[in-house]
């Protein structure tokens, strides 16, 4: 027993070193903009850079739009599949996993072919159209996470009986969905939302190829031209992602506590 405890401690230590060392090194490096002293100068420069603010804000807005559109598509679909088409569940699940298999660059080239200025729906002609296209692309990218989170939450409640209970009390399908189903899968929906947020904030391929001023391309631009600021940005990006993951934990725990 002692042996195996020691073994697991060693593997945890190796894992920690593997993940934390680069992070610590990056953090340390990001503090060395001023010669000879540690300072947050790199962070100050980054945070006060108008391009940083604009691109970060752009990506946040896009992430929120992606979450809303994704939820509106995924929740009713997952609900309906569980309620009426249980045999189709593996098929739907497979479809939602496709974005993990098909590389982003392939998807975005597909988008460009389908929606270019010569197509029936020339979304890329205007910047608003391109923003829409980007949002829908992100919805696709986040589909595996969103669907999984929502479907797992649905599995935890008795969807069929709750729906019947609501309907026998006079509720329409919409009322059942908004008043009974949505509130009961809130925790799952939130974790899907935070994962989506984390993905969209750092996404590069889609935004770059569609030529939109998102945070991902900004990171790349700064990385190519500066020394200390990219390190500061990397740390900031990490904090944002971890905050998202932390919030999933908080809401997940809150739900368990109430069970």
């Amino acid at each position: 027993m002692k042996r195996s405890t020691l073994g697991s401690w060693i593997s945890v230590a190796i894992g920690a070193v593997y993940f934390l060392l680069p992070l610590i090194a990056t953090f340390e490096f990001s503090l060395r903009l001023k010669r000879g002293v540690y300072s947050f100068e790199a962070y100050r420069i980054v945070l006060t850079d108008p391009s940083f603010q604009a691109s970060f804000l752009y990506s946040v807005v896009l992430a929120l739009a992606t979450i809303v559109v994704g939820a509106v598509i995924v929740v009713p679909t997952a609900y309906w599949v569980r309620l009426k088409l249980p045999k189709m569940r593996p098929v739907v699940e497979f479809v939602t996993l496709l974005p993990l298999v098909v590389p982003a660059i392939v998807i975005v080239f597909g988008h460009l072919r389908m929606y270019n200025s010569q197509s029936i729906l020339p979304l890329t002609d205007s910047s608003f159209g391109t923003d829409l296209l980007l949002t829908f692309g992100y919805v696709t990218l986040s589909l595996p996470y969103m669907y999984r989170s929502v479907d797992t939450a649905l599995a935890a409640i008795d969807v069929a009986t709750l729906t019947e209970a609501a309907e026998s009390l006079g509720a329409s399908r919409t009322a059942t969905l908004t008043r009974v189903i949505f509130p009961n899968i809130r925790a799952g929906l939130l974790s899907g939302a935070f994962l989506t947020f984390a993905i969209v904030i750092g996404e590069f391929t889609f935004a770059s190829l569609l030529n939109r001023p998102a945070f991902g391309p900004y990171l790349q631009l700064v990385g190519a031209n500066r020394a200390y600021e990219p390190a500061a940005l990397a740390i900031i990006a990490f904090v944002v992602t971890w905050a998202s993951l932390g919030l999933i934990q908080v809401f997940g725990a809150a739900r368990k506590g109430s069970k």
């Binding site: 409640i157 008795d158 009986t161 709750l162 019947e164 209970a165 609501a166 309907e167 026998s168 009390l169 006079g170 509720a171 329409s172 009974v180 509130p183 009961n184 809130r186």
Partner: peptide, 20 residues
Amino acid sequence: LPPAKRDVGMVFQSYALFPN
């Protein structure tokens, strides 16, 4: 008629209370 229009109340073996 759909269930909502029948004016029929139902009690289930599994209670089916809304957990939220």
